[in-house]
Computed example of a mutant assay.
Amino acid sequence: MDISVVVPLFNEEESLPELTAWIDRVMKANDLSYEVWMIDDGSTDRSWQVVQELRAENPNLKAVKFQRNYGKSPALYVGFKQVIGDVVITMDADLQDSPDEIPELYRMVKEEGFDLVSGWKKKRHDPLGKTLPSKFFNAVTRKVSGIELHDFNCGLKAYRRNVVKSIEVYGDMHRHMPLLAKWAGFNNIGEKVVEHRARKYGYSKFGVSRLVTGFLDLLSLMFVGQFGKRPMHLFGTLGTLMFMVGLGSLLYIGGVKMYALANKIPHILVVENPWFYIGLTSMVLGTLLFVTGFLAELVSRSGSDRNNYLVEEIVGKE
């Protein structure tokens, strides 16, 4: 199969018929074999009924329904587990991503050899309250990750299939898919300017809080990428430094005390010396960091149910 399209959705009943018809039209016009995985993230409207009706008309449409709302990243994770196409396309269900972009995204992966191609919504139909924070977020992510992309959060992306099979998307990490791919060893990452269309139905499901969570996710991802498999390297190093500071402080106090006693020099009590408390606090913190490192090592080897989501129903799985 040429292409698998993964579409996370939440309360998008109005846009689904138009979106699936558009995708089908584009695929047939370009003679591409395809499947579409609709991942219903616990919709409370008629989205799932609409998906089932569309499935009856189009056997290329397949779907998963969550029992409750988990978020976009879990929806992508489950969709990636199902896909069988050579190239995997992700896009939003609100019709702001154009299916007309799919053939060129497919070509860039298949013919130009990109592991991942990220869409760039160069001209956006969003208010300044979304575009300005997004530009700042992208600039920070670009600087921290070293990946030269303009729009990390664009939902329209194309992947080589082994990329999505090699990465684990959880929490809200869908904003950082290029970085996840990079950590997995896929460094050939490209970018394509894509059309961003004004929302036709409904309203955006994302609020201002995503800016805060986006930065927190980036920090978490950088930590996991660097130390996820070896947390003791970080906590052990910090613990050693803190412990050495504390030990050095106490040795300094002891040396000053012995010198003063040997030369009968007036001196203050140990408990009145601020270095005593600095040394004591540093040794305690160093010990705690060591313990944290050991616990983190244990946690890193467990957590097998981190991506265990309740799936109510799957249709179309072969």
Rank of each mutant, 00 (worst) to 15 (best):
P8W: 05
A21W: 03
D24L: 09
M38D: 00
G42W: 01
V51D: 04
Q52P: 00
A63W: 01
S73A: 15
A75Q: 03
A75V: 01
V83Y: 02
T90E: 04
M91V: 10
L95I: 09
E101N: 12
L105Y: 09
L105G: 05
R107V: 11
F114K: 02
V117S: 12
D126Q: 14
K135R: 13
F136E: 07
F136K: 01
N138W: 10
N138T: 01
R142V: 02
N153R: 12
N153G: 14
G155K: 06
K157P: 07
R160Q: 15
R161I: 13
N162I: 11
E168S: 09
R175H: 06
A181E: 08
N188Q: 04
K192P: 00
V193G: 06
E195Y: 14
K205V: 13
V208F: 15
L211E: 11
F215E: 07
S220N: 07
L221Q: 07
M222T: 03
M222S: 04
T237E: 14
G246D: 13
L251M: 14
I253F: 10
I253R: 07
V256W: 08
K257H: 09
M258H: 05
A262L: 13
N263C: 11
P266L: 10
L269S: 13
L269K: 09
N273G: 06
W275A: 14
F276T: 15
Y277R: 12
T287W: 12
T292N: 09
T292Y: 13
L295A: 11
A296T: 04
A296K: 06
N307G: 01
L310H: 08
V311H: 08
I314E: 01
